[in-house]
Design a protein around this nucleic acid. Structure first.
Lengths: 195, 195
DNA sequence: GACATTTTGTACTGAGTGTTCTAAAATGAG
DNA sequence: CTCATTTTAGAACACTCAGTACAAAATGTC
């Protein structure tokens, strides 16, 4: 057999992810990545063959943990509306907890636009996952009577997803928690049945 | 007197702005800026003393034209609600027109976060201007009965502004016009009076 | 212990970065 | 025309960038 790695690959990906998350792709140098992960250049290029490939790994990792925590938040309440509310409030709380760094996917979308195929694919995959998750819970809310039935669940999911992006941008811009909670509250009310 | 400039400074700023808008700050090299503006390196550094200073000029320029077109859209309808609708629909139309490049301010917010003081100040100024504009029209809508009175106009403005950011991110991510119109429509309905 | 294999540390590469320097060219005032 | 002033063109600058070459170090197997 061969010499074993001295580090945990997933842990390294997570460190790199945080570096990209804080400063963006272009502004994060390979040197920064070495320092963030604690690896030498050789190890970085040996395990993840390029900066861009490492970024893709970081996006994938982010997507996994993001979908997981989002799903947990959505499961933390009874009615459909309350579940959506819990997810939005959780997003705000998360932003406060990590100092308003926004969402890696949103930041990547803004930085790359549709100039990068691989990044675009990751963003599409993430969006589809989030929308599928949201649509299910919104449909449940329409069934239990807490969410308006006059609009397609998929459309409302799109709206909620856009609201999350808006909140992420607000946060990254430095908005305070109260403003974000206000926006989240109005968005939740928009889902209520029209009496 | 001295030798006159061979180019229009504002026009150069606009070209630089478009370069930054398309590709972001870091990914736009000084070489790119020379090609975009048609100027030589000397002229660029002579008139705008650094890449960063030129970016600040670009942000300022964007802010001016952005606020202007936004104000025009808001004035293009009768009732308060219709004015907000016109602004959101206009945003969607603008995105289609320019191929989904999003908003320079949103992109800058995502790229810089709160790491850059000058950029942060420009973003704060822009946000305040947009919110002030929106708040006025929303207040008018509350007066003419087309917008809900149970919430503060400033809060609703914050919501609409966040929705615009969300739409910009959607667009930059490659979303289609129908999805964006759907989101805009739901946001407008959220402003309606609760019967 | 010798070997095949893989990781690691260090030095290096060539290209590209933002910025500056120098000197020629272009202007209007005196 | 002369001169001070400013813009231009283009080379040059120091530095950083992402990525590589290479040899030493570390493993399990034989």
């Amino acid at each position: 057999m061969a010499r074993p790695k001295e580090f945990d690959e997933e842990r390294a990906v997570e460190s790199a992810m945080n570096a990209f998350w804080d400063n963006g792709y272009e502004a994060t140098s390979t040197q920064d990545l070495c320092e963030a992960t604690g690896l030498g250049r050789s190890s970085v290029y040996n395990t993840f063959k390029s900066k861009h490939a490492l970024f893709e790994r970081a996006l994938k990792h982010y997507r996994a943990i993001g979908l997981h925590t989002r799903a947990e938040l959505l499961d933390s309440a009874e009615t459909g509306l309350d579940r959506v509310r819990a997810m939005l409030d959780g997003t705000v709380a998360e932003e406060r907890a990590n100092g308003g760094r926004g969402c890696l996917m949103v930041n990547a979308a803004a930085e790359f636009g549709h100039h990068d195929e691989a990044v675009g694919a990751a963003m599409r995959a993430d969006t589809e996952g989030q929308l599928a998750l949201l649509t299910g819970h919104i449909r449940a809310g329409q069934a239990d009577g807490t969410i308006d039935r006059h609009r397609a669940a998929a459309d409302l999911a799109q709206f909620v997803h856009a609201t999350v992006s808006g909140l992420r941008i607000m946060s990254r811009r430095g908005a305070g928690e109260p403003e974000m909670r206000t926006v989240a509250g109005i968005a939740v009310d928009a889902l209520r049945p029209r009496t």
